[in-house]
Design a protein around this nucleic acid. Sequence first.
DNA 1: CTTGTGCAAACTGTTAACAGAGGACATCCG
DNA 2: CGGATGTCCTCTGTTAACAGTTTGCACAAG
Lengths: 254, 254
Amino acid sequence: MAESSVSPLHIVRTQSLASLVADELERMILSGEIPPGTRLNEQALAARLGVSRGPVREAVRGLDRSGLVVTVVNQGSFVRQLSAEEAMDVYDLRVALTGYACERLAGRATPEQIATLEAMVRGMEAAAEADDAARYYALNLDFHSALMSMGGSSRAVRLYDDLGKELTLFRRRALVVRENMRESNAEHAKILRALTDGDGAAARVAGEAHIRGGKRRFATSTPTGGTEPPGQKRPGEAAARGEEDHVRDEDSAG
Amino acid sequence: MAESSVSPLHIVRTQSLASLVADELERMILSGEIPPGTRLNEQALAARLGVSRGPVREAVRGLDRSGLVVTVVNQGSFVRQLSAEEAMDVYDLRVALTGYACERLAGRATPEQIATLEAMVRGMEAAAEADDAARYYALNLDFHSALMSMGGSSRAVRLYDDLGKELTLFRRRALVVRENMRESNAEHAKILRALTDGDGAAARVAGEAHIRGGKRRFATSTPTGGTEPPGQKRPGEAAARGEEDHVRDEDSAG
DNA sequence: CTTGTGCAAACTGTTAACAGAGGACATCCG
DNA sequence: CGGATGTCCTCTGTTAACAGTTTGCACAAG
């Protein structure tokens, strides 16, 4: 996620076509360029990406395992649709993970780590003041990622990110309003305070409450959400067109 | 997992070769038939399973996404090796998940669910008394699965199972001794009591303590564990032979 | 006008073949 | 005798072609 398009042939020597296709597909899906329920036409995707069907099939199979698409035999793969209940369950899992990371971090946070988190919170405060939702969104992602990374493990980070991707399948463009940013960042500060105090129990409670807050903030302004079964859109070519704008100024984890 | 080999052509109409290969590969890996670090030779596997390389590649790509194998470009895929630290991290994640499920279940467990869990605990008590490790192992799996299913969500169940699969990559055949079974089941009873009382906090603490206990019980009798990098075994044909016995009388979540 | 049947096109599942990279072994030079 | 180098072989990455299935449409019968 850090450096892309570094050296021209270094990519070829470290990435396979299938993995590149998988990344691109994931990006398309998460950005909403390919909305949930859409069928992934292998031929169209292969043509659009300039590769053969083999790598595309491998990539789709991988996304199937990671839960972003659902495959029906002899019918194809569809971008997964999350029901509202499933989305709420995912939120709850993130509650548990965040609480776990916060509690663990409280016991062993270094002053440098505290300072890093503090800087992020201050940055978000400024972003909220300036009503800069995009910047708040990015910083918020970083904050939670750092929290999981410092307190949990690399596995926990991946897990949290994966759950976030699933959530993205559900919530589209839940606008971040200034009030929500203020409230969210106040919760961040509360976590930070507990970490500074080294109070594990308080950190856990604060972390859990924060994600629950995000869940609530999101749930209050949500439509209804789709259903799970395939429910494709068009048998013809529906994928590989997209090209909508994909601004992502949503309330990630509140 | 419930019904396999139902109708002869029903399988063909509901499963693809790639998914069948994926299942078989996963079974081989988890059973130890293909030990961690082994390179997965596509040609050999395809020949052994009687299919072409395409489905095998798709299956391996899926396992890569789910974390069971690690792929190096132009070198192949290797069964993932978990370091001891990673395994401990996975245990900690299961601690968090179990605590979350127990707390949620305490608030809304039906008498039927309590009875089901109670029956399992009694069954494990009998198994421990009879020193029947295999039976205890199976019931223990069921108990935790039921716990996650009742208290968490289907997503949580899948998560817990996936983490269990990763753990299986690390611990091979950690024998269950009678003492451990007794201790483990006493913790089960403690969880059950908290659930019966409807005490969410106590249930969470008991659930967390139980997984921590399993982690400790396992850690006390563990070797050292491997390292993460590829570390293949033989460039030639090392996979697709296996055929060892694969008894699985280990301490699952103890 | 509705419904059932048959055909045709498109797409998925699978296989086989081709090109390039990596590694091992033998050979040659210092 | 040790090390570098060249060659061969195996395996992965990719592509193209083939077979089976599903889906949509048209046509005919009631």
